[in-house]
């Protein structure tokens, strides 16, 4: 706040009480224009085009016929795959992440340990993408460290190099689970840790005063309080896996999950037989995401009740 004092003395003479406040408000409104224009051009228009294109034929005539793509068994199978990969990695990721949050309780929030955990989680959860795919190719790919060690140990055909009789696990849909967990667990640590830290020491003391054990503390106090935050984070994890593209694209060249199906439809319109299937799939994804994020916002509202 030393800067206030520094600036006041020389500028004291040029006070500008002149222009009317209404004119100044107009000028201030103009200041919002550049950002508004940017957001309209590069967020609103692309979003509307993406979702809206599903409702038009190739000639630009409005139609609902394209929605038939959602009834295509192949598309449905890919939606189903997206759902189960997201659900499985969200549940496992949420449980493992919560255990790590539990282990971090009581460590100093500004300490070196927490700084390292936070930064590492952030990198893996938000910016990994393609690089995480590489990490797992080097770990459980055909020539990966673990795969080769297993082969050398005598398991020439193991779960990683011949999964379900279809070759390398990593290049099939179930193979997405390990790399996805590698960003889901860190995301859980990032989103659930604030809730865990919101547990007040006094509640533990009150429980002990009233004769409760650590077991009753967890089952009667901590778990009910943490439940909304936990399920909120679980939903966020599901949404994160559901919308993730880069990791899957770097591993799997064909379709299999919805983001990959969108890519297939954009690069070469195939199989389904109606136009603008990518737009229909985008619409499907947005509907799922809006439902998820609404549920997340509601659970977050409940969870924040316990924080002052």
């Amino acid at each position: 706040m030393t800067t206030v004092a520094a600036s006041s003395a020389p500028a004291a003479t040029k006070s500008d009480a002149g222009p009317t406040s209404s004119r100044r408000r107009t000028v201030a409104w103009l200041g919002l224009l550049p950002f508004a224009a940017y957001v309209i051009l590069f967020l609103a228009i692309p979003a509307v085009l993406a979702v809206g294109s599903g409702f038009f034929t190739k000639e630009g005539v409005f139609t609902l016929a394209n929605l038939a793509a959602l009834a295509n068994p192949e598309i449905q199978a890919q939606f189903f795959a997206s759902f189960w990969v997201s659900a499985l990695t969200a549940v496992i990721g949420a449980v493992l992440g919560a255990v790590i949050c539990f282990a971090l309780l009581g460590t100093k929030p500004d300490g070196a340990l927490r700084s390292v955990v936070d930064s590492a989680s952030s990198v893996l959860a938000q910016f990994g993408g393609v690089m995480l795919a590489f990490a797992f190719i080097a770990t459980i790919g055909t020539q990966g460290l673990i795969t080769k060690s297993l082969v050398q140990a005598g398991f020439t055909e193991n779960i990683f190099n011949s999964f379900g009789g279809n070759g390398t696990l990593l290049y099939q849909i179930p193979g997405l689970v390990p790399p996805y967990l590698y960003f889901q667990v860190p995301l859980m640590v990032l989103t659930f840790m604030p809730a865990m830290e919101g547990l007040k020491t006094t509640w533990g003391e009150a429980n002990a005063m009233l004769g409760g054990t650590r077991f009753t503390y967890w089952t009667r106090i901590a778990m009910p309080i943490l439940a909304p935050a936990f399920f909120g984070s679980l939903i966020l994890l599901f949404a994160n896996a559901f919308s993730s593209y880069a990791t899957a694209a770097a591993l799997i060249s064909q379709g299999g999950i919805i983001p990959l199906a969108i890519k297939q439809q954009l690069t070469s319109e195939t199989v389904v037989g109606v136009a603008n299937v990518a737009g229909v799939l985008a619409l499907g994804m947005v509907i799922v995401m809006v439902i998820l994020m609404t549920a997340y916002a509601m659970l977050q509202g409940r969870a924040s009740r316990w924080r002052q």
């Binding site: 692309p46 085009l49 993406a50 593209y245 954009l266 985008a282 947005v286 994020m293």
Partner: peptide, 16 residues
């Protein structure tokens, strides 16, 4: 942009 995944926005970015 968190609710609308990049993979969806991309469908709109192509014409833009």
């Amino acid at each position: 942009p968190i609710t609308i995944p990049s993979i969806v926005l991309v469908v709109g970015f192509v014409p833009v």
